[in-house]
Design a protein around this nucleic acid. Structure first.
Length: 354
DNA sequence: GACGCGTGGCA
DNA sequence: TTGCCAAGCGT
């Protein structure tokens, strides 16, 4: 092995002591807050998640507060952060803890893992940070640090890779203080052993890093590429009546933005003209519910909203409604609804909604 | 085991 | 402009 276990842990712990950021969830022992921070930080940068952490602990100082909140409020607070299943599962888990566990936060790896939205990484992180459980974390940072230090080219997104890196991480774990150690490795990966242009010449491991010595730093870790992007064509029908009401629908189907709100949607298989749009069955269904005036295309140039796996080529169509919209919502109430960024951006640009 | 799930920053 | 990446998880 390139680096002795004790050498690795002592150097990484020392580096962390001098270089760790002062983050709010590092100044608490409250398992609820540690857990919350870990959920927020899944696939999310610290800078992006920080304001959400503050919003949540202010709105929900305790698990009980979160558990008793309506889902709508939780999703509204989560709006803009993405991966909304995290918010739904966080809420479900809080309710589970409050009711089934009598408010007692789980203290074993197995019980942590049983919470919705908590997988191997999060159970290991919370368990180590809160209870010094002997569970090593393996996140994107750990993959990068270990693959480079030990020159491991096994693809990290394969069953074999996951198993191999978990085993190595578990072997290296510094048992005296697993929480600090886990955070140290992640912090080192996030702040020093970066994906691009790491400062290897000044690295504490440049005497022993296999990737550095063999000039393979930029090639590691290895990740198999996958998933092509699907194109979809969205036509949002923005209704507006004389009483300053509009209409929102909640997305209840599987897929993106579950439980979030949007304007009535007509999805097509290509960019359509107003004539083509009016021929669409889905549009006709909306049309039959209201007395519509003419369709006005808000954006000639489509908004291309890019998600990880989809490009949403989007047009917004403005329609005045002669009658009063049934179960419509006041424009002034729009801010109460959790909406995707795509919708929020439109609302902020459409004069009557600003 | 592969795939779907958001948003934003960076080279 | 494009692709990759970010403290992953559920199905």
């Amino acid at each position: 092995m390139a680096v002795q276990k004790e050498l690795f842990s002592s150097r990484i712990m020392s580096w962390y002591t001098s270089n760790k950021r002062d983050l709010p969830w590092r100044n608490t022992n409250d398992p609820f807050k540690i857990w919350l921070s870990e959920i927020i930080l899944q696939q999310t940068r610290v800078d992006q998640g920080m304001p959400y952490y503050y919003k949540f602990i202010e709105a929900f100082p305790t698990i009980k507060d979160l558990a008793s909140a309506p889902q709508e409020q939780v999703l509204k607070l989560w709006q803009g952060l993405g991966y909304y299943s995290r918010a739904r599962n966080l809420h479900i888990a809080a309710q589970f803890i409050a009711t089934e566990l009598d408010g007692e936060f789980p203290i074993t790896y197995k019980d942590l893992l049983a919470l919705k939205g908590v997988g191997d990484y999060t159970a290991s992180a919370v368990g180590s940070i809160c209870y010094n459980l002997p569970t090593a974390v393996v996140d994107g940072n750990v993959y990068r640090v270990l693959s480079r230090l030990f020159g491991i080219a096994t693809p990290i997104n394969t069953t074999e890779g996951i198993k191999e890196f978990k085993k190595l991480a578990q072997h290296l774990l510094f048992k005296k203080d697993t929480g600090t150690y886990n955070q140290a490795v992640m912090e080192f990966g996030a702040r020093f052993c970066t994906p691009a242009n790491p400062d290897c010449d000044h690295c504490i491991f440049n005497d022993s890093c296999v990737a550095y010595k063999t000039e393979r730093v930029s090639e590691l870790p290895v990740k198999l590429k996958k998933t092509k992007v699907r194109k979809r064509y969205f036509n949002y029908i923005v209704l507006l009546d004389s009483e300053l009401q509009t209409k929102l629908h909640q997305r209840t189907e599987k897929g993106i933005w579950q439980q979030l709100y949007q304007f009535p949607l007509v999805e097509t298989n290509k960019i359509v003209t107003s004539v083509e749009l009016m021929k669409d069955d889905c549009f006709k269904k909306i049309e039959s519910e209201y007395k519509l005036e003419e369709l006005i295309l808000f954006n000639e140039v489509p908004v291309i909203h890019k998600l990880s796996h989809q490009h949403l080529i989007t047009h917004f169509w403005i329609v005045s409604v002669k009658s009063t919209i049934e179960n419509g919502i006041k424009i002034s109430a729009l801010p109460d609804y959790a909406v995707p960024v795509l919708i929020e951006n439109f609302i902020s640009k459409f004069p009557p909604f600003k």
